[in-house]
């Protein structure tokens, strides 16, 4: 899953040490501040984030780009 070659995101959200659902809530609050097409990286070490961030993207029609080192999760604002 780790992709060290991932291009730099437009914003980074540090949710390390936070338990779910907090990283997902932080993502939902922050993403609208990015322009459509912008990419945010959520740094989250709660194991549930690996499940819940892609699931949130699916429920909200946003684009989940994948997991990165960090551990992080890249999301593109698509609407």
């Amino acid at each position: 899953m780790t992709a060290p070659e991932t291009p730099a995101p437009d914003a980074v959200l540090d949710c390390l040490g936070q338990r779910c659902p907090l990283p997902v809530i932080a993502l939902a609050r922050r993403l609208p501040s990015l322009p459509v097409g912008g990419v945010i990286r959520v740094l989250a070490d709660d194991p549930a984030a690996a499940v819940d961030i892609p699931a949130w993207c699916r429920m909200r029609g946003q684009e989940f780009l994948g997991a990165t080192a960090g551990p992080g999760y890249d999301v593109r604002r698509s609407r």
């Binding site: 779910c20 659902p21 549930a48 690996a50 499940v51 819940d52 699931a55 699916r58």
Partner: peptide, 11 residues
């Protein structure tokens, strides 16, 4: 199980 299905796990 929720992880394997790829569905929301919190709440």
């Amino acid at each position: 199980v929720l992880e394997a299905m790829g569905v929301l796990s919190h709440g």
